[in-house]
Amino acid sequence: MFYRTEDDHGLKHNPFNAIVVPRPIGWITSQDREGRVNLAPYSFFNGVAYHPPQVVYASTGAPDKQAGLKDSIGNIRETGEFAVNIVTWDLREAMNMTAVAAPHGVDEYEVAGLTKAPCEVISCPRVGESPVTFECKLVKVVDLLSTDEASPNRLVVGHVVAIHIADDVIADGIVDIAKLAPISRLGYRDYGRVGDVFSMVRPDWPIGDREK
């Protein structure tokens, strides 16, 4: 099939986010100037730079936009900081609870039964149950193309200034991805978790005769 994205695709659901997979989940903690905390998952999330380490997440203007997710960018703009908690298999249900369209001011930590653990560099808390958390300072908020001014698409860029890693997911000096057991967002209502892992060594140049 072929369709232009401004036209109806004719399928039961939008195939776009079912094709761009798997997507890491950024479980974003933020708080406003009064200390009211917001916790929300974002599946348009990734790392984008090594030196200094930086991450991005996007708040998208979907028609079924959940009210609670709008609080994150407002809080981050106010305070200039946020935490990214990694979602694992054991935390899947708690993460899903924090995706609820809760009214402004509702504490998602309490809704999901999660622990507010202190960060070291920034003032907002992290998810105590998450084995990995990035403490981030805001770099910029970028306005993206949007079809509805009332529900804009925005990209948040954060500088990772500190990282928490639970000792029990480290083995032989590296993060053991099987022990970490992160989950990812797929399309529709689907999720995935790390299963088969394989390694490949990047070739040196010149590559040589591949037929030998």
Rank of each mutant, 00 (worst) to 15 (best):
I174G: 07
N153W: 10
S146P: 00
P206T: 01
G173S: 00
E129M: 13
R185I: 07
L145D: 11
L180K: 01
P152Y: 13
R202A: 08
A166T: 07
G187N: 10
I170E: 03
F198W: 06
K140S: 15
S146A: 07
P206S: 03
V157N: 01
E135V: 09
V132Q: 10
R202F: 03
V156A: 03
S151K: 04
E149W: 09
E135Q: 07
W205P: 09
A166V: 08
A166Q: 04
A178E: 15
I177V: 13
V161P: 03
K179F: 05
H159P: 03
V156Q: 05
K179L: 11
D148Y: 13
F134K: 04
D148T: 10
I165N: 02
D168K: 09
R202M: 02
A150K: 14
W205L: 15
V175L: 12
Y188P: 04
G192F: 05
R154G: 00
P206R: 03
H159L: 14
A181R: 00
M200E: 09
V157K: 02
V169A: 05
H164A: 12
A162V: 05
V197L: 10
D148W: 11
V157W: 01
A181E: 04
A150S: 15
R193D: 03
Y188D: 11
G158Y: 00
E129H: 08
G173W: 00
I163L: 15
D204P: 02
L144E: 08
V157T: 05
E135W: 02
L180S: 01
P152L: 14
T133P: 04
A171S: 12
L155K: 00
L138Y: 12
D172T: 08
D176G: 11
D176Y: 00
V132A: 11
I177A: 11
R189Y: 12
P131Y: 00
V141S: 08
A166K: 04
D143Q: 15
A178C: 12
N153P: 01
F134P: 01
V161K: 06
F134I: 06
L145K: 13
D190P: 04
A150L: 15
R193I: 00
V197W: 00
R154L: 06
I163H: 09
S199C: 13
P131D: 03
I177W: 02
N153V: 02
R154V: 02
A181F: 03
R154E: 05
V201W: 07
G158N: 02
I183A: 00
D168F: 06
T147P: 01
K179G: 08
I163A: 14
P152C: 14
A166E: 06
L144N: 10
H164W: 07
